[in-house]
Design a protein around this nucleic acid. Structure first.
Lengths: 343, 343
DNA sequence: ATGAAAGCGCTAACAG
DNA sequence: CTGTTAGCGCTTTCAT
């Protein structure tokens, strides 16, 4: 495992490291190095299969051409797809991506942020799960380039973020149910509810049922604890539907809760859409395949990724001069399928 | 964004960098540095919020405490879950994980391997998609630590790998169908078929139908091109089932084909298990939720991850002395559900 | 048109 | 018990 270094190829050619470095970085012409010499360098490089040591390069340059992505849960298809999209975008700009998963844990996310900064990534894209936003504030204070996706912090002004309009999306979905005659509409949301995405989705729901003049009893809104989705969903499904025949429609706040919901409904032999109508946030390939297929509020991952990376690149190249931060709201898509019944 | 360096804290304290470095790396006692001094160093470090520059550290030490993972497709739930498992395992050993997705593309995988080596990762875990295995041979030749998962190269002897027994798993599934009276059993496999996992699954299928004395016509075995799964599956479903009423059971080689298969069956209004029985490789949470739920051959991701990381760690710490390579076959799990009918 | 040398931040052999 | 110093592999200023 004898690594070949810049020096090896320089001495073997009888020139200096400087020259080789210049040529390899495309500054050959700029420094007036003979075409002939340049070609020879390239040839040697290829022959010896020389690969610059990126660590040494990073140390010298103070940048790594790598950006970090922290998602809440990589085993969730939504984030996995996003990760792949973002990776592709980064590659277009010549950047590599390091993907990490915080598993919705505050401490892990904070430590990942530190770890990635220590590894000298040039910027960060984060779907944050943090209650304690110290690390975010710190990055902001240090002018460290970062973009939030999916979730943001209203209490920290002037940060870059890319999100969908959760409020409107939620409102629209619930309004659709109301327009189809539903009066007792439950929402299975998640707790802790400090995430803006969740808060906005909740608010959209509440405003829609108020405005729609339908049942606004607070028991219709359920908070599922993140650590115990399956059991809790089952509890609420049993309570809301089995013992309370009134509820005819459910909005779930994300795909994991939707899946748990499907499982419980199946267990209790409650039929969709005959007994209950269902709409969920986040689209999964399989939602289309189920019988009935599931109506979803789908997020444009490509747009989110493209915007996030483009903002980050801008941020990186104008680190200290870029004053205005981008706060982008991309449209969500209401994907109507078979899981809702008209009453 | 003023970075605080080792030197800053050394001068501010009036000691040398060496001392600080020793203390911070836990060699304080070993070098007989006064408890008092050590505490002071720690205190200063914390106060100034000092974080060692990992890039400098990597350069100096020649290792990065980072390992790289290349999966065939991060947006595939199977690999996403595996990624998360492996990340957890790595963390236990104090290593960080960089996750990359080759998207089943030869060129991308090769370039990822190079990229990660350039970034000085200490080892690699790869679910390889390579036809051209030059990069693998190169790593082997260079004694670079790596472990293959999910797929391996029979033509390269003495490499570490962790896989399930694809042959047996496949054989068993088909035998189950035969035992339940099925005589015309199709397999939807994938092409190109150079991956060992696919080859072994195919062989298991063929041997089982031969031994079971059922229909062995070659048209029952279909090769779905990777780039065009949906259309191709639809084509075969139509051909095999709609126009050939004999086929009563299907084995699909992975979850993506299973999903496409479900989609087509739905489209043609072919019912599971009444009209057709289905078994697939790889388990998805949703397979349990479908009506009927889908019988699967499920891989023990936790075991695969644990073994792969543990082997890699061993490989890293005994880089040049470790002669024997580990070739681990972990058991798969036949998850019987409702998608198979007894004839 | 090319090279010498400094230095990025850290660790570790060696000196004291 | 603590400090000096060399050097990991690269880029870049300044000389020539």
């Amino acid at each position: 495992m004898k690594k070949v270094r810049l020096e090896d190829i320089a001495t073997k050619m009888g020139v200096s490291k400087t020259l080789v470095s210049m040529v390899l970085n495309g500054y050959g012409d700029k420094n007036g190095i003979k075409k002939e010499t340049q070609e020879k360098v390239i040839a040697f490089t290829r022959e010896l299969n020389y690969k610059p040591n990126q660590v040494a390069r990073s140390l010298r340059l103070g940048r790594s051409n790598t950006i970090g992505l922290i998602v809440a849960d990589i085993s969730n298809a939504f984030y996995a797809k996003m990760a792949r999209n973002i990776e592709d975008e980064c590659n277009k700009y010549g950047y590599n991506l390091i993907i990490c998963s915080s598993d919705e844990k505050d401490a892990k996310e904070a430590s990942l942020i530190r770890m990635l900064k220590d590894k000298q990534v040039d910027g960060l894209i984060i779907s944050s799960t943090l209650v304690d936003n110290t690390e975010i504030k710190l990055m902001k204070h240090d002018n460290f380039p970062f973009v939030l996706v999916d979730r943001y912090f209203p209490e920290i002004p002037d940060t870059n973020y890319v999100v969908i309009d959760n409020y409107k999306s939620s409102f629209k979905a619930v309004k659709y149910l109301i327009d189809n005659g539903h009066v007792n509409i439950a929402m299975l949301s998640i707790s802790p509810p400090h995430l803006t995405s969740v808060k906005d989705r909740n608010k959209g729901y509440f405003d829609a049922i108020k405005k729609g003049n339908v049942n606004t009893d607070h028991y219709l809104h359920c908070q599922i604890p993140f650590e115990d989705i399956e059991q809790s969903v089952e509890f609420y499904i049993e309570k809301l539907i089995k013992y309370n025949q009134k509820v005819t429609a459910i909005l779930t706040v994300n795909q994991n809760i939707a899946l748990a919901c499907l499982k419980s409904l199946k267990k209790f032999k409650i039929r969709i859409p005959e007994d209950i109508s269902l709409i969920t946030f986040d689209d999964l390939p399989v939602f289309e395949l189920l019988s009935p297929s599931i109506t979803t509020i789908s997020q444009p991952l490509d747009l989110i990724s493209k915007n996030a990376v483009s903002i980050l690149m801008d941020e990186i190249s104008h680190k200290n001069t870029r004053k205005a931060k981008d706060q982008i709201v991309v449209p969500s898509y209401f994907q109507l399928r078979e899981s809702c019944k008209q009453l």
